Computed example of a mutant assay.
Amino acid sequence: MGASAGFVAYVREQFAPLGAAVTDAVFFGGRAFSYHGKQFAWVMGSTLYLRVGDATRGDFVAHGAEPFSYVTRKGQVEVRKFYTAPEFLLDDSEQLLAWARQAIASAE
């Protein structure tokens, strides 16, 4: 599943206020977003995933977010460092930036 070009462009626009330190590149068929070289988000398909840490994981879970997962021959694998961005963030630029800043802090 690749990253939706339109959705990547939307996310790139939303992250623009974070400055030139934000870069993005191909990442396992999706698109990874990094801040000063530290990955804090990625897009797979039309889904945005943000980096979480012990201090922020509860907020994601409380908003119904789920960890990134994929299926292998041995079963499902969960990547608990990245959770889906809660839906409300995609409609609220200020909140998305606030959560992105927390994701950046979690990546350091």
Rank of each mutant, 00 (worst) to 15 (best):
Y49Q: 08
R80K: 15
D92M: 04
G58T: 05
A85S: 08
R51A: 11
L50T: 00
H63A: 13
F33Y: 06
F28N: 13
Y10F: 15
P17R: 06
F15A: 11
E108T: 11
Y49E: 03
V43T: 09
L18R: 07
D24M: 06
K38L: 12
K38N: 12
V71C: 09
T72C: 00
F88V: 10
D24N: 08
E66W: 02
G45L: 11
A107Y: 02
F15L: 15
F7R: 03
A20L: 12
L48G: 00
V11N: 01
H63T: 04
K74W: 02
E108D: 15
G75Q: 01
F15G: 04
S93M: 14
L48Y: 04
V61S: 01
L96R: 06
T72S: 09
L89S: 03
L89E: 00
Y70M: 04
D54R: 13
F33R: 04
G58N: 12
G29C: 01
R101W: 09
P86A: 05
L18M: 00
E13K: 15
Y83W: 07
F82C: 06
F40Q: 03
G2M: 05
W99A: 08
H63E: 12
L50Y: 05
A3Q: 01
E78M: 03
A21K: 01
E87C: 03
G37F: 05
S106C: 15
A55M: 07
P67A: 12
